[in-house]
Amino acid sequence: MNTIIYIVFLIILNFLIPYFISLIVKFFINKMQKTYKILFFIPSLFSLVVGAMIFTWMLNPVSGPIAFILKNIGISMPNWSNSGILAITVICFITNWKVFGYNFILLLTGLGSIPQNIIDAAKIDRIPKWRLIFNVVLPMNRGISVYVLILTIVQGLQYVFTPINVITTGGPYYGSSNMIYQTYLNAFVLYKTGTSSALAIVTFIIFLILLFIEIRFVEGRSDKYV
């Protein structure tokens, strides 16, 4: 269940939101695209350990800057490390801080690969931008979007391992753990190799299904145009 929650949060934070912002930058702002790429990509240069330590300091419920600001306006900050769903949310935000820029660049580049003559023809016919996006842009950009979606799930589940290990170690009571961390925990901490092997096989099957989807929708789509 925790793994499913992680996947849902990662898809929202690392795929849907970057996709939405890339559409806005491409079709509504259409200026300073290189600047946006640089600004969003800067966090990707830092280690997840550094990000985990920064977020832990900022979100400290006792002495962190956010807790101090909330205290001044009469709001007490909850101890998120004692709540499984809050810990998962914070861990996903840390991963989002790391991955957001990379996914944003991929999606924006994919939108830029759509033939300009199609977009110009739509403008001449005075087709509303929202219809252009839903009826033309999104279908033509399906290959790169499916690739980024699968990359978000696979890399996201791998990346959350570091903040889990640094901040919560799977707690409280395995409330922030997932299948990948649980595989590591059973193999190298609890020495339950049978349980660890079973979890590893299930994880492998999940990744195999995702690989099949990528080949079906990305590689197969590419072969059509060769």
Rank of each mutant, 00 (worst) to 15 (best):
K129G: 00
G112V: 02
I29E: 00
V62W: 01
I114A: 04
I88W: 08
P43V: 01
G51S: 10
I118S: 06
V25G: 05
W57K: 13
F93L: 15
L70Q: 07
P115W: 07
I54D: 00
I29P: 04
Y36Q: 04
P43E: 04
K71A: 12
T56K: 13
W130K: 13
N72G: 06
L111W: 03
T89D: 01
L86F: 14
Q116M: 12
P128Y: 07
N30C: 07
I85P: 06
F27H: 09
N79R: 08
I118D: 02
I75W: 10
L59E: 01
F28D: 06
L107H: 05
L39D: 01
I119E: 11
F68W: 13
T35N: 07
L59W: 01
A121P: 06
G64K: 01
I118V: 14
I94D: 00
M32Y: 15
N79S: 12
M53K: 12
N82V: 09
L45P: 02
M32F: 14
M32I: 11
I127C: 11
I105M: 12
W97T: 03
D125N: 14
D120M: 11
I73V: 15
I91N: 02
I133L: 08
G112C: 04
A87T: 13
K34D: 13
I88G: 07
L45N: 03
S81F: 09
L59S: 02
L23F: 08
F93I: 11
M53S: 12
I73Y: 08
T89Q: 03
I75F: 10
N79W: 03
S47Q: 10
V25E: 03
F134W: 15
P61M: 07
L108A: 07
P139D: 11
A122C: 15
I88T: 11
F55M: 13
I94Y: 01
M58A: 14
N117Y: 13
K71P: 00
V90Y: 08
Q116L: 10
N141R: 03
A67H: 02
L48I: 15
V90W: 04
G74F: 11
V50I: 15
F93P: 01
D120G: 10
T95P: 03
V137F: 05
I105K: 09
G112Y: 06
W97F: 13
K31C: 03
W97K: 00
L132A: 05
M140C: 02
L138T: 14
G101R: 12
W97R: 00
K31Y: 10
M140S: 09
G101D: 07
L107E: 07
G74Q: 11
W80T: 01
G64S: 06
M77N: 00
D120Y: 12
I85G: 01
L23Y: 04
L138F: 13
V49E: 00
F100Q: 07
G74Y: 12
P139H: 08
L48K: 04
K98H: 14
T95Y: 03
N103T: 04
I119V: 15
L108G: 07
A67P: 05
